[in-house]
Amino acid sequence: MTIAPSPTAAPAPIITPGNGQWIGARGEQQDAFGFHGFDDPDFRAHGGVLAVLADGMGGLQQGRAASQLAVTTLRQTYATKAPEESIPNALDRALQAANTAVYQLAMESDGEGQVGTTLVAAVAHAHGIDWVNVGDSRLYGYRAAEDQLTQLSQDHNYAVILQTQVAAGTLEQADADAHPDRAALVSFIGLKQIPYIDTGTKKMPLAPGDRLLLCSDGVHGRLSDEHLHELIRQPAQPAAEAMIATLKAAAYPRQDNATLAILAAEAAAAPEPNSGTKDRPSPPRWSKWHLLALSALLLLALGIGIGLSLRFGQTPEVEPEPESDHL
């Protein structure tokens, strides 16, 4: 059951997109991103707005093709969501379709495990946010009310496994930090079955000032959480451009492809009262005494007018000229 908002409720915030991308020190751009729902109000009413980002795996073949195929397939599949289908189900269905597409690409070219990409997707809607993630591209959430930036997604790399060993007491933290394979992915798009999938739901919808940030490891691997927190508070597109500008200014010699997508909630303009009409003065209200007085004045004016017309309408008397002495 849908509960209609009260007439005094504040209008829902407007979600605006932002994006930024830089090839970095690589020879090819292997990241991809996309949005859906901004130009379709009917879909947005039940499917929200979608942002998706993928980072093709540079150590494997066809990383660029894999990331672009994953983003396109997920976006197009999610766009088929019916109003009665839940957002988490639609996201999972779209994720599986993206994995199947990249897996088929791998089987047609270099074989299973030789073509792959990370993928993170998030949907902002009237009841909260939902996301799916495979790999080490990340989703961050910024809450303006608390001025707090939080990593929402979970990385799927060997470092996570190493940390579980540290927590269990079977590995020293220094050894985990120095492990040569800590960045290796343990789950990615392009396998027959996805080993690990991170899904999440937050029932609190975005409020004005809130942000969702999706980014590849070329962004979060170089910019600290403090940097991201400082820059994300801007409107969507200026924030995205500021992050890319910061990376370019740092000029790291081994800078990876850097890509980010932002969903930002901004306050909607409140509707003006009496929209479409102008205040007009009310016509005068006459009592019977006003009418009687007006009638008397009209009669008086009429009498004066008649009198004046009679007075000035007479022919003037002419005195007779004196008789002349001449004949």
Rank of each mutant, 00 (worst) to 15 (best):
S67R: 10
S295W: 10
I23Q: 15
G128D: 10
G221R: 03
T259Q: 10
T199C: 10
P281N: 09
N99W: 01
H127C: 09
R233E: 13
W131K: 04
E230P: 03
S6Q: 12
L298V: 15
Q96H: 08
G141L: 11
D42Q: 09
E85N: 02
T2S: 09
R182A: 11
P283Y: 09
R311Y: 11
A207F: 10
V123R: 04
I304F: 07
G218I: 02
H229S: 12
V132E: 07
R44F: 03
S287I: 03
L223D: 02
A249F: 01
M204E: 15
D136K: 03
T118V: 07
D198P: 03
R44M: 06
L214C: 00
A97D: 02
L327V: 13
E28N: 09
A121N: 05
T201Y: 15
T170C: 05
D40H: 04
A9I: 09
D55N: 12
A159Q: 12
T117D: 06
D155R: 01
F312N: 09
L119D: 04
D136W: 08
V71E: 07
E226M: 06
P180A: 13
R26A: 05
N89D: 14
R93L: 06
W22D: 14
Q173P: 14
W286S: 08
L171G: 07
A293R: 11
G307T: 08
E146K: 06
I15N: 07
D181G: 13
G27Q: 09
V132S: 07
P205R: 10
A25P: 00
A122Q: 06
T199V: 12
S287C: 03
E108P: 03
H227A: 11
M107K: 08
R182Q: 14
R75D: 03
F188P: 04
A258T: 12
H127N: 14
Q255I: 12
N274Y: 01
Y78P: 04
V219R: 00
